[in-house]
Design a protein around this nucleic acid. Sequence first.
DNA 1: GTATTAATAAAACGAACGTTCAATTAATTC
DNA 2: GAATTAATTGAACGTTCGTTTTATTAATAC
Lengths: 202, 202
Amino acid sequence: MARTTGSDGEKTEAAIREAALDLIARLGFEAMSMRQLAASVGVQPAALYRYFTTKEALLHALMLEHMERLIASWGEARPARGSDKEKPAGRLAKFVENHIRFHLARRNATHVSNLELRSLSSERLEQILALRSQYEGELRSILTDGQREGVFQIDDVALTAMAIIQMITGVIVWFRPELRLSEDEVAANYHTMTMRLVGAEA
Amino acid sequence: MARTTGSDGEKTEAAIREAALDLIARLGFEAMSMRQLAASVGVQPAALYRYFTTKEALLHALMLEHMERLIASWGEARPARGSDKEKPAGRLAKFVENHIRFHLARRNATHVSNLELRSLSSERLEQILALRSQYEGELRSILTDGQREGVFQIDDVALTAMAIIQMITGVIVWFRPELRLSEDEVAANYHTMTMRLVGAEA
DNA sequence: GTATTAATAAAACGAACGTTCAATTAATTC
DNA sequence: GAATTAATTGAACGTTCGTTTTATTAATAC
């Protein structure tokens, strides 16, 4: 056999990406074999190599897409200039809310991006870390502005930014949609905790 | 050749554990081979199996030791009954400080325990998770007490406990001892942030 | 100093791994 | 409807993996 009826490159690549996110999130990147992935997609192992030159290139593509979407998501959610919510407190609120919702909607991709960095070559790792640093820079600038304007009480901006990022990303470790709290409640809770954390007025 | 001069089971096992923590933290559990580990210890691969029946049993032993030490560490650091620091605020302060210092002193073991859980069989996983839950229960009980006494302002104890754990464990992701801040400064910073987070008076 | 036990080496097992290559068929273009 | 391109299969490659078995030597006990 060879090409199958109805086969479509775009759809196959999308299916590979989705199946890979699921398998890597569950088993880990090193533990997932290309044969497993192919079987999950319903394709022979060799077919994967039409879309990704190596296993590592696949991982890199997944992380790149995740980071670019995250940054784009914040670009759209960020309050417009001149609006009332352009003040530091409003920007921070939006940042936390967008972050929580984005990550809850993409648990697999988040797990992959957070847990599998060490499987990247140094060159690819640097690119992903640069994007991550760009995103975190947005938070740092919010904190810096709030500190300058006297609405936040922050000892160390860089440390506080890391603490907030760790705290709000950690939601995917324990949150299960079928449980007690709704996504809205969780987002509201993290918002409150973040505002207290930076010493902002309620 | 066979038994080497000066060989000692206890020392060899300790050397295996230390080398394994280092390799797994750097490469990941699945990516580390038993041959690599043996070479790092300075021993033949077969020798490893005198101390650990399987690769997974080795991982489990490392995590078990880490969790038991963590719980023991808190058992020693916890304020004595009747002391001034037995109040919720004092207990929380001690909990955060002990957690930060313990994890900074054992970065490799922390990385292994946090990142490699999915490589455990379900039976072994349950045991580790039970210990983890026991430790987190200590934090939850501090928060509950503070909430009851009205010294903490907390919307949801379980959620807040997870947020704090994620935040303070995250220190090992970014902190580098050679950089800007000292361990004392970092611990003090996390203490301040935690107190604000739970709405405690300064 | 002999017997026993502890600690390791050396070699090998089958299985699984990532990846490549040639052949084959479906879809598209003209 | 012939020529071209896109998508995939099937088979195979050399390598590495976790683990086991057997033999051998060092340390210990009597």
